[in-house]
Write a protein that binds this DNA or RNA. Structure first.
Length: 394
RNA sequence: GCGUCGAUGGUAGAGUGGUCAAAUACGACACGCUGUAAACGUGUUGCCUUCGGGCUUCGGGGGUUCGAAUCCCUCUCGACGCACCA
């Protein structure tokens, strides 16, 4: 599965960041070598309002297809997101209303456009699956579902897992793959791109297309960004890496990636040629990665600035120029001011930080010992290892 | 409809009248070490506090008790079994 010669765009398209291709890489390659232009898509369920680094993998791949002249559809799953893909193991996802999913998707195009072009020569097309799923009658839906069998759907790992554990599967979850599968039919695509974890749903689309349209849909799965334990990167609770994060935050968050993931990130998230992907000094490599990603999502200047801020703050331990600022009256309790300004969520959190020497007065260059310290003059604080706050007295 | 079991903190999962703000694990946060990250070690992990303690939590409501996550009633939701229907 190594790229043949550099410069062969088709080989790169078929291998870089790619997990598998169905029915086979060779079959797809043959079609592409014939010069045929394909109609393809990837679906994004707007369960949240921001696209994150995981979405970027797919966007990169779509952009690559686009560059080679294929017609790319950026599909918003405004309807499918209401049910939720039952990919989370146990609990069913919270059900969203259509208003919520549309609101979530509001800025998707803008965020995606950092990677995928919606204007110019061969613009990507944005579609909403509510446009067809919303028009289906119950009978029509069941007729569609009739093209797939119970055993085909229930075969899914996750369903099997749940059954084994005596967990339940709601009928809506059970039918989710049918909805997603129908997207392929409604758009009459030639190929679908998606994360490896979407393989099952995409294969359902393949089966449905074969049955309803007598057409073979190709499926391309992309590798996931995982650490060595198989935990998805950049998706920790409340800490997801959004594509529209501020450059220096983005830089910092990437620097917090596990070292082992860096090569994979280069492959899946950047345009650096495969043979140039560095694999020597982990720190330098990761900085390069962070730089590239920030650059591509913003611009080179911002990337350089972000890198500088990061180096100064975390390597040279300098006090950053820019930091959060709060105003307070002299005599106020510092803890109260921080909670009031939502720097901290509670005074207990402050107490813990002080007890654990996690709060520093940068003017005095010492940890704060007294949790009940009152504000008497301007203060510069370091809270934890990455939060800096300036307190001004009025 | 009947019956049985179940619902505990971010998650998983102990606890079955006081010693329970609730074991343990994971996660999260902080500190130390350090090249970012990790690994490793330590500490913290409901809220408030004059640091004595106080207050609110174990699906919802009500009750028994000096005292309830723990017992009783009821409601909601779920699993399983039976019945009904076919």
């Amino acid at each position: 599965m190594k790229a043949k010669k550099s410069g062969d765009k088709i080989s790169e398209l078929l291998t870089r960041g790619v997990d598998r291709i169905y029915p086979s890489k060779e079959a797809l390659e043959e079609v592409l070598r014939s010069g045929k232009k394909l109609r393809l898509y990837q679906g994004f369920d707007p369960t949240g309002s921001q696209l994150h680094i995981g979405h970027m993998v797919g966007l990169r791949k779509l952009a690559e297809w686009q560059k080679l002249g294929h017609h790319v559809i950026f599909l918003i799953g405004d309807y499918t997101a209401m049910i939720g893909d039952p990919s989370g193991k146990l609990s069913s996802r919270k059900v969203l209303t259509h208003e919520e999913t549309l609101a979530n998707a509001k800025n998707y195009k803008e965020q995606a456009s950092k990677i995928l072009k919606f204007n110019g020569d061969n613009p990507a097309e944005m579609l909403f699956n509510g446009d067809w799923l919303g028009k289906l009658s119950a009978i029509e839906f069941l007729q569609i579902a009739g093209n797939l069998t119970y055993s085909q759907v229930i075969e899914r790992d996750m369903f099997q897992e749940r059954l084994k554990q005596g967990q339940d599967i709601s009928t809506s979850e059970f039918l989710y793959p049918v909805m997603q599968a129908y997207d392929s039919v409604a758009m009459n695509v030639d190929l679908e791109v998606g994360g490896k974890d979407q393989m099952f749903n995409m294969m359902m689309g393949r089966k449905l297309m074969r049955n309803m349209l007598k057409k073979e849909k190709f499926v391309m799965t992309t590798k996931l960004l995982e650490d060595k334990d198989g935990v998805k990167i950049g998706k920790t609770e409340g800490n997801a890496i959004a594509l529209d994060d501020k450059p220096k935050d983005l830089f910092g968050k990437i620097m917090a990636f596990p070292d082992e993931a860096v090569v994979q990130c280069f492959e899946s998230l950047t345009l650096i040629p495969m043979e140039e992907i560095p694999n020597t000094d982990p720190l330098l490599n990761k900085k390069r990665l962070a730089f590239e990603i920030v650059k591509d999502l913003n611009d080179e200047k911002k990337a350089r600035e972000a890198q500088e801020v990061w180096e100064n703050t975390f390597q040279k331990k300098e006090i950053p120029d820019e930091m959060e600022e709060v105003k307070a009256k002299a005599g106020e309790l510092l803890s109260e001011v921080l909670v009031k300004n939502k720097i901290l969520s509670s005074k207990s959190e402050w107490r813990r930080l002080v007890l654990g020497k996690g709060a520093h007065d940068l003017e005095k260059k010492s940890a704060i010992e007294d949790q009940n310290i009152k504000i008497t003059e301007n203060l510069t604080l370091k809270i934890g290892k990455k939060r800096f706050v300036k307190v001004f007295t009025l």
